[in-house]
Each structure stands twice: as C-alpha cells, then as structure tokens.
Computed example of a mutant assay.
Amino acid sequence: MITKFLLFVLITAFYIAYFAKQILLRKKGIFTNRLAKGSKPKKTAMIESCLLTITYGMAVIQYAGFFLQRYMLPVKLPSVIQWIGIVLTGLGVLFFILAITSMRDSWRAGIDEGQKTTMVTSGIYKISRNPAFVGFDLLYIGSALAMPSGIIAVAAAGGLLFMHLQILEEEVYLFRIFGDEYKQYKKKTPRYFLFL
C-alpha cells in the first residue's frame, strides 16, 4: 500500500512539473507542445502523433491503475521489484525536473522549425543529451514495475519506442539547426545516460 501511495505522489509530481512548465512558458508567449503541430515531414508527423497519444494515454493508464488495477491484467512481482520501480520513478521525476529547469525558455516537446531556441549543454545536459526523455523513460519503466500490469507494461513499451524514434528525428533537426556545435556535443555527451 505504501508503494502505491509513493508512486501516486511521484507520478503526480512529474505531471505537475510537466504542465506547470508549459503554463509558465505560455505566459511568456512560448508554446512548448509542438508535437504533431505545423508543417512537418510525414514520418516526423506520424511519430509525433503517436508519441502525443501515448504520452497522454500513459498518464490516463497510470492513474487508472490506482483505481482499476484488477481490470488491467495485474501481474504479481516481488515487493523488491516494486520498490525498484519506485526508485526508478523517483529518478525519472528528478531527471525531468532538472532537464526542464536547465532548458529554461528553450524547452519544447516536438520539432518546430519556426521557433528558434538555443542549444543547451549545461546542467544535466552535460551528462545526457536527452534528460527529459530519460525522465519519461524512467517514469514509464518505474511505474510498470511498481504497479505491475500487462496494460501498463505494453503502454510503457510503446512510450519507450516512440520516444526513441522522436529522439532520432530531433537529432537530425538539431544537426541541421546547430551544425558542428551539435556534432561536437553529440561526440562527448551520451544520447541517454552513461554509455547509452
């Protein structure tokens, strides 16, 4: 029961940070959610549409799991695995908050050719090129372990896949925009974390 409560608090903290950052930037006239918006190549638009659906869908599934878990193909896992899930979820919240804090006004979800941002390589971006995505990945993996269910596991796997595909799209975009500066950053900073 304590794991469920902690997971609820962590997931809620994550989504509060996500939406609070969007609201704060919107007050400055910056629209952060660029997923599946504007004119984009077909492949990019499809990936972003899927990612947008999975991102919001996963939030609904996570919260539904707290109240409807017995209907979501529950799986029995040892409590130590559930505690590992709590730790991973907590790390996900930390990574995400550090990422959006480091990005300041340059944080965006999705590619938008019309909005100019600066390349951020400081803070947590010194150890990961995509710490916000790492935050989401850890949140999804952690919640799937802490609240084991077939539905949450499948949704988490879909989220991980489409976030990776989005990262690949963004890498092409960032190289096109920042050129050699991004190429050098890419050489010294891992895509995810440590050696990944």
Rank of each mutant, 00 (worst) to 15 (best):
R104Y: 13
S102W: 07
M72P: 04
G85Q: 08
F162Q: 03
D105S: 13
L24V: 05
K37M: 15
A59G: 13
I11Y: 11
Y173N: 09
W83T: 03
I151P: 06
L194F: 15
A132D: 09
I16E: 04
S106L: 00
E170K: 05
L6D: 00
F14E: 05
K4V: 08
K188V: 15
G142C: 10
T89A: 11
K126R: 15
F175K: 01
R191D: 01
K37P: 11
P148H: 06
A132E: 09
I30A: 01
K43L: 11
N130T: 05
T117Y: 01
M147V: 05
G29M: 01
S39N: 15
Y71K: 02
I84N: 04
T118V: 09
A156D: 13
M103F: 13
G114F: 13
C50I: 04
T189W: 11
R129C: 01
A155S: 10
K21L: 01
A45Q: 15
A13R: 09
Y71E: 05
F66G: 14
G158W: 01
R191V: 03
G29H: 02
T121L: 12
I97E: 12
G90C: 00
W107H: 06
A153C: 05
T53L: 07
K187W: 13
Q22V: 10
L68A: 03
S49D: 14
S122G: 15
A144N: 12
I151C: 05
L94I: 07
T3F: 08
A146D: 02
M1P: 13
A59I: 14
A146G: 09
V134F: 06
F8K: 12
I61T: 13
G179T: 04
L161K: 11
E181V: 15
